[in-house]
Design a protein around this nucleic acid. Structure first.
Lengths: 329, 329
DNA sequence: CCCCTCTTTGTAATCGATTTCATGAAATCG
DNA sequence: CGATTTCATGAAATCGATTACAAAGAGGGG
């Protein structure tokens, strides 16, 4: 492969001048500029990115942490991130954590070794105190999931409001026994729970601890939890799920058992994924603009890189959620 | 940030010895080894990846071209690629082409500038003659979509067999008027069409050109094409779709219009995505092991890098497809 | 004790760009 | 017309690692 030195030799110029042409600097005469361009074409020259990265101390690479590539809500976020990244000349490295604390931390090594200019988290497995030390190495942005004590910019959705809206909707439909599928210890999960209980308490409804279910993320989880719910002696008449996939599986399972949705049991989704309006009955759900927060997060990231935004102190961009009423409630 | 020179100075050793310790080379005494490790920890040293990449002429980065991140079948492939990549110390750069010929070619620049060690295509927009010149710059692997004249390794699924199985199934169900949703000019689309017509011709069925529809990829496309089908005077009684999303939308649309599936119109999917078994009626479809071909493609890629496999001549790994019979046919 | 091999370490070149500084030529100004 | 900018270009340092080669010291055999 041809190097800049080859181009310099071929044109009889110095590598400095060739570099100036490549980077479109001023103070290069038109004839030399053309000479260099012709030589680059003639020799099949392409600047070596590793060399540039080393010298420029910048890689134009961003690591995006995502729990699972096969989760449509997270790929929607990724899509939003990608849109802004590509418009600004950044490439994305995908880091699938599979919800592993260890992997999450391991990926931060990319930042320490300067392989990426920064990191965007779309989910968080570890406590903030374990992640915080890494903020010294470059911008870290939280997108979607968050910790209340995080000392970095976060782009998030108003989970309290979202789950409050959904729960109130269920209550208005007459439900007083509502099962709740809980997430992790992240700020997102805490807030979602907060909104749920806010609506419950406002309505003066009593909540049983056996109606609360942990770790309900995947379709398998949904199936399992739904079975558990059916076996309860004092059975809930509505279910607040953590996501549309779980909700879809529950609707499916209900149908398989001859239970009518929402007549026998109402099911509320979360996300408003495409699947929500494809299944029968269509899912009532909370619309989460995943692509929007992804795009915002990438924008915030660029602001941090350019020093326009403080990268090591907390700042919050919060977007509202909205209830989409369909036929499952 | 500390550099290798800092560690050398701190320990009183040369950077060569430090480098040997970092890379676990033999012929370094145990005490120096420990000395260096302690110093690295003390100084908070991490090797700079750009510098290593430059020197080693290797980035451990692979570009993966994918039409849309929000398409579950492609993220399934990505998941398979990621599994093998991560097990072998490679990172993935996602390149969303959005089915644009120009973007596809633009991403190959990553290969020319040596930002990545190679490229895996999961879809192909351009003709092979336009891509071929780039094979000079590094391994290019085709995964899923392919061109028959490609001069690189390909990992693919037996599309002829898959569409043949599906079409024969429709014919066995008594259908003689079958609409066909066509793809592009890639080898995959050609073969899928080949399998379809093989079954049609074997059965001695007459095919009308107005039953053939182009560019049916997205849910919007599905809706549009379904409407067109309903308006035909000589209406097909079955539809061969290009994917489960399109099929799902069609099932939905049929329901909305009071048409019974499969009674009034049978609908055959492709891929066997999760959605296939969530909608009502469940989709009969062709199971495509996306993660499997992804994993194989990444394995093949590594073989090419290691010189175990010829990277600039055609080789084919083909996996079989299978029919999953459910309730939409 | 001498010669040879093996281990351990260092010096300096190298990977391929960018950029500072220096220099001479050309343009501008009063 | 002389002084001062501005323009165009090159030499060489630099980014931060890896590695070929050299050299010194340790150990072994005869």
């Amino acid at each position: 492969m041809a190097t800049i030195a080859d181009v310099a030799k071929y044109t009889g110029l110095s590598s400095a001048t060739v570099s100036r042409v490549i980077n479109n600097y001023p103070h290069v005469s038109e004839d030399k500029r053309k000479l260099v361009h012709d030589a680059m074409k003639e020799l099949g020259y392409f600047p070596n990115t590793s060399a540039r990265n080393l010298r420029n101390r910048k890689t134009n690479l961003v690591a995006v942490l995502i729990p699972r590539l096969t989760n449509p809500f997270f790929t929607l976020i990724l899509d939003g991130i990608e849109r802004v990244a590509e418009a600004n000349g950044f490439q994305l490295i995908i880091c699938q954590t599979k919800s592993s604390k260890k992997k999450e931390i391991d990926f931060l090594n990319l930042l320490q070794t300067k392989q990426v200019d920064g990191v965007i988290f779309t989910s968080i497995e570890n406590e903030w105190e374990l992640i915080q030390p890494y903020t010294a190495y470059g911008p870290i942005i939280l997108c979607n999931e968050y910790h209340h004590d995080a000392t970095v910019p976060m782009v998030r959705l108003d989970q309290v409001q979202g789950s409050y809206l959904g729960t109130r909707h269920l209550i208005e439909k007459g439900h007083t026994k509502i099962a709740y599928c809980m997430g992790s210890t992240s700020g997102l999960s805490i807030d979602r729970r907060r909104g749920f209980f806010k609506a419950i308490e406002e309505a003066g409804i009593e909540m049983k601890s056996e109606w609360i279910f942990r770790d309900t993320y995947t379709m398998e989880d949904g199936k399992r939890v739904f079975q558990q719910i059916l076996q309860l002696s004092d059975r809930p008449t509505a279910i607040f799920t953590g996501g549309d996939e779980v909700a879809s599986v529950m609707v499916k399972e209900a149908g398989r058992r001859g239970l009518h949705v929402p007549g026998d049991i109402a099911i509320l989704g979360f996300d408003d994924q495409p699947i929500a309006s494809l299944i029968e009955p269509e899912l009532t759900t909370i619309y989460q603009p995943g692509d929007e927060i992804g795009a915002r997060a990438m924008t915030v990231f660029i602001e941090c890189l350019n020093g326009i935004r403080e990268r090591m102190s907390q700042s919050v961009i919060e977007l509202p959620l909205s209830l989409v009423i369909r036929d499952s409630t």
